[in-house]
């Protein structure tokens, strides 16, 4: 059993959260740089250029990339052999509230979803998922997730007989319905299998994969590419104003499921893709942007 003093990792988490507000994943920037050359319509090129200019201004002038600095999602892969001296969960909430205050990020969380929609004034609570993994390594994935793309996400319990075509149709229908609302070019996180709650989690987890990485299984990797090609033929384009660049990637994560079921979840992510991870390894706390 290895002890981790969480106070030591607090500055790392705060720095990661601070940077996420003003920095998008550099792979998005690369992908958009490439997409500009593929686009033929002037509006599509103009929108993509605006996005690139925005990333540069945000980074150099320390201004949030998007006014929606999001709800904070933590995905923790906790080594079973670790022992945290204090509450890691409390620390994460504390980091969010401190960073939001210190950097004037937007308070976007309301206390009660219906009867008291009053903002909590420190953007907490964060949304925290935990998974136990073997060994004594721990990875903390962090995302600032905007509301617009999250709102257009969807889950459906398909029939097993719907198969691959049913899955593809559901993803395409979800993207069509989202249109410009999800701030395309989007990243499409898909969960397939498991059960009702696991499939939603898988679709979120898929977004934490390195952008444009492929599923480790060849068949699923080919399916990801096929769906991406189809999505980019829909014509939705950057910001929904028409064009070839509707999505930058489709990431699918799967799990075994019940004989009666074929759960599918689609979690959409806007182009302002703000994710990072912190790896705690052998008492050495590495921090890097994914």
């Amino acid at each position: 059993m290895k002890d981790i003093n969480i106070e030591v990792i607090k500055p790392k988490i705060k720095l990661a959260l601070t940077d996420l507000g003003t920095h998008i994943d550099s792979r998005v920037e690369d992908a958009i740089n490439n997409a500009i050359f593929e686009e033929t319509q002037s509006i599509a090129k103009d929108v993509l250029q605006t996005m690139l200019d925005n990333y540069r201004i945000a980074r150099s002038e320390n201004i949030p990339v998007c006014q929606d600095t999001g709800s904070v999602v933590f995905l923790l892969e906790l080594g079973e052999e670790l022992c945290f001296k204090n509450s890691l969960i409390n620390l994460l909430h504390e980091c969010v509230s401190e960073v939001w205050k210190e950097h004037q990020y937007r308070d976007s969380i309301v206390k009660d979803p219906v009867f008291h929609r009053n903002i909590t004034k420190n953007n907490s609570p964060a949304i925290i998922h935990t998974e136990l993994v073997k060994g004594d390594d721990t990875t903390i994935y962090i995302a600032l997730k905007g509301g617009g793309a999250e709102n257009m996400s969807a889950l459906k319990m398909l029939n097993p007989s719907d198969g691959r075509e049913g899955i593809k149709k559901f993803i395409i229908d979800t993207v069509l319905l989202a249109s410009g609302n999800a701030c395309p070019p989007i990243i499409i996180g898909v969960g397939v299998g498991g059960n009702f709650e696991q499939v939603a989690y898988l679709s979120k987890k898929a977004l934490f994969r390195e952008l444009q990485s492929t599923n480790s299984d060849k068949e699923w990797a080919a399916f990801e590419q096929e769906i991406l090609t189809d999505v980019n033929e829909l014509g939705i384009g950057p910001q929904g104003l028409g064009g070839k660049t509707t999505a930058l990637a489709v990431h699918i994560e799967t799990a075994p499921c019940h004989i009666a079921s074929l759960p599918v979840a689609v979690n959409l992510q806007c182009h302002a893709h703000r994710i990072t991870k912190i790896v705690l390894q052998d008492s050495d706390y590495d921090y890097f942007v994914m």
């Binding site: 996005m51 925005n54 308070d107 910001q239």
Partner: peptide
Amino acid sequence: AVGGAAALLSKCIISCEVVCWEDLGT
């Protein structure tokens, strides 16, 4: 307007003041 371009758009704002309903925060 382009979503996710908030740093760039903020450069086009010359002045900003709350007119009413400050209790609503943002």
